[in-house]
């Protein structure tokens, strides 16, 4: 295993260099213990392939997605304009995100504020690396022939129409993909979006993540692949609530690649 290298944008810029791509870590990727693992896993892949990248580190702020969706445009504009100032200062052209919410807002909503970048979700980025032959999967890896199911996140799925990229990545692991009953365009939300993550549920008779986790458990797959830190939290909570946390694991696609290739 090669040494982990996670350059900071400020350091790279100080050397007068511009990295090929900025890895936007996001709040969950930075602070949530579970999502941090995905962040590191993705960095390992970037290192392995030899991608020239950097992160903003402490210069990164929340993109403002939950504030905007809760209705708080002021908070959104403040944090977004600040981010755009930083991104434009570093002349960032290409961004990759491990969070679909960051991806959606950077890609679709920052341009109206003066932030124009090529934005990719990490599943799209990984698909490109695989298609270009830059990222090769080890044969006979840990997931060969194993049943894996995939949960479409709303924000790369319906919000942006990305359904195939994550599936291509999964197929490259040579596993047996079991589709959930509600998948692709019909995928069911995990319950976190629209700032729901940051408040109690409205009164109802079931939690949304319970509904989705039950469906994932019904697939019979021991591994649930996801692409969003909030989906991972929600699904893991649902699986744990059903007492299945020992039998069913919820992973991000990047983690599966790291596992497969022993990075």
């Amino acid at each position: 295993m090669s040494n982990l290298n996670i350059p900071l944008m400020a350091d790279v810029a100080a050397e007068g260099k511009t990295p090929e791509v900025l890895f936007w870590v996001g709040c969950a990727g930075s602070f949530d213990a579970r999502a941090q693992k995905v962040t590191v896993a993705f960095c390992k892949i970037l290192n392995e392939v030899g991608i020239d990248f950097a992160i903003l580190g402490q210069e990164e702020s929340c993109t403002g997605d939950p504030a905007r969706r809760a209705g708080n445009e002021f908070i959104f504009q403040m944090t977004a304009l600040q981010n755009i100032e930083v991104l434009n200062m570093y002349k960032v052209e290409k961004i990759v995100c491990t969070c679909p919410h960051c991806f959606n807002i950077l890609k679709n909503e920052y341009p109206a504020l003066g932030g124009n970048y090529e934005v990719l979700h990490h599943t799209q980025f990984l698909q490109q690396l695989i298609n270009d032959g830059r990222l090769k999967m080890k044969e006979g890896g840990a997931f060969q022939g194993k049943k894996i199911t995939y949960h479409d996140s709303c924000y790369i799925g319906r919000a942006n129409g990305v359904y195939e990229a994550p599936r291509t990545v999964l197929e490259s692991l040579d596993n047996q993909l079991v589709e959930l009953k509600r998948s692709r365009k019909n995928g069911l939300c995990c319950g976190a979006g629209g700032a729901q993550m940051f408040k109690e549920d409205e009164p109802g008779n079931k939690r949304i993540n319970t509904e989705r986790s039950e469906e994932a458990l019904a697939s019979g797959a021991p591994i649930v692949a996801a692409n969003c830190p909030f989906c991972i939290t929600m699904l893991r909570d649902g699986v744990t609530a059903a007492g299945k946390q020992e039998d069913v694991m919820v992973y991000d696609l990047a983690e599966l690649i790291v596992d497969n290739n022993g990075l």
Partner: peptide, 17 residues
Amino acid sequence: IENTGAVWQIPDARDKW
């Protein structure tokens, strides 16, 4: 978000990870 630039009130640095 307004005060610390993160969705959660966490005292850690953003790049502690």
